[in-house]
Simulated scan of single mutants.
Amino acid sequence: MTILTRRALRALMLTLWLPTAALAQTAGATQADLDALQTQLTTVEQRVDRLKDTDATKAATLGRDLQLLREDLTYLRVKLRRENALPAAEVAAVRDRLGAIDREASGTTLTVAAPSARAGEIAVGQELDARLQTPLSSQTAEVEDRFEATTLVDLYQGSTLLVPAGSVLRGVVSGVERASRIDRRGSLTLAFDQMTVDGRTYRIRGSVTQALEGPGIKGEVGKMTAGAAAGAIIGGILGGFQGAMVGIAVGGGGSLLALPGTNVKVDAGTVLRVRFDAPVALGAAPLPEPR
């Protein structure tokens, strides 16, 4: 075979291969995937509709979530029709959110804890949502003021319950900046140093990553498994959940920051998302009882 012939053959093979390779790299969701998603959406809608007879408030909240998913599904249909391509990840994201609503409607909320090398240990980076029991304000708080928050969900490691809902986290105000009349904004730095689980108190090191709004806890207790993000279930645990508090940002080290010229005000009942900054071995000896 001459050099010219070999080059021509190689060019032909490359021409035939390229479209196949490109297709493999860009392969995504299909119309069949969207049709299956629509069927799943209809099933969940029916379940939420039946929920109105037993828990109208919960049904209304889930109904609003479903409306957003309907809009997302419509967007995906239009995108597939116009671009003739649709990333599978976008469909998977909608499917996951729909699955979470389905679990909420059926009362089988599931969340997972961060992976840990040891049994009975809360790993670094695990987050839990806890409801603040007393109000806090940068206008009145002092460094070393104590406060408490109670966890909203059961935290599991596999089938083992690590932290039941209602466990108490003890916090301390580690820093305060009061607002000025001009532009200095108030701030509160919060840290958590103790956690009481089933009457046993352990030393922890935790910080706040978000301050969340929600007027009330829904009837059932959520179940969380080690490793899952706390945000995966927060919408189902809080009635009328609104998300991050307006006017409060969270800086490094758990600092709550107000708008310029204003003080931080965090009402009792606010949900604080707490991140564990050190591992907690729940099988270890607890702190001694105070005398």
Rank of each mutant, 00 (worst) to 15 (best):
V78Y: 10
L68G: 09
R95W: 06
Q67L: 14
R47L: 04
A100H: 09
G99N: 11
D53V: 13
V112P: 00
N84I: 10
L80N: 07
V91I: 11
R81P: 00
T111A: 12
V112C: 06
V78M: 14
A92D: 15
V91L: 07
V78S: 10
V91Y: 06
E83A: 06
A60G: 12
R64T: 15
T109P: 10
R82N: 08
L110C: 03
A88R: 10
L68D: 10
A93N: 11
A59M: 05
G63L: 02
A93D: 14
V91A: 10
L98F: 07
N84A: 08
A92N: 15
A113N: 05
A88L: 13
D102S: 14
V78L: 14
R81C: 07
G63K: 07
R64G: 15
D96N: 15
L51D: 04
T108V: 10
R77Q: 13
D72W: 07
A105V: 02
A60D: 12
T74M: 03
D49L: 00
L62Q: 03
L51W: 01
Y75R: 12
L86N: 12
E90D: 12
L69H: 02
Y75V: 08
T54M: 00
R70D: 11
L69A: 09
A114V: 05
L51M: 11
T108I: 11
T54N: 00
E104Q: 13
D53G: 14
R81Y: 08
T108F: 04
V48W: 00
A114Y: 06
D102W: 07
T61M: 10
P115S: 00
L86S: 12
Q46N: 14
T108L: 05
L76C: 05
L86I: 05
Y75D: 09
K79I: 07
A114M: 02
P87K: 08
S116M: 00
S106P: 03
E71G: 12
R103L: 15
A56I: 03
P115L: 05
R97I: 04
A59H: 03
S116W: 06
L86R: 11
R81N: 13
A117Q: 09
L62E: 02
G107E: 02
A100D: 14
D102A: 15
N84F: 01
Y75E: 08
V48H: 05
G99Y: 02
A89R: 14
V91M: 04
R47N: 03
K52Y: 05
A105K: 04
A59P: 03
L98T: 05
N84D: 11
D72G: 05
V48M: 01
P87F: 10
E104P: 02
D65I: 04
G107K: 00
A59F: 02
T61E: 15
D96C: 03
L76Q: 06
L69S: 11
P87V: 09
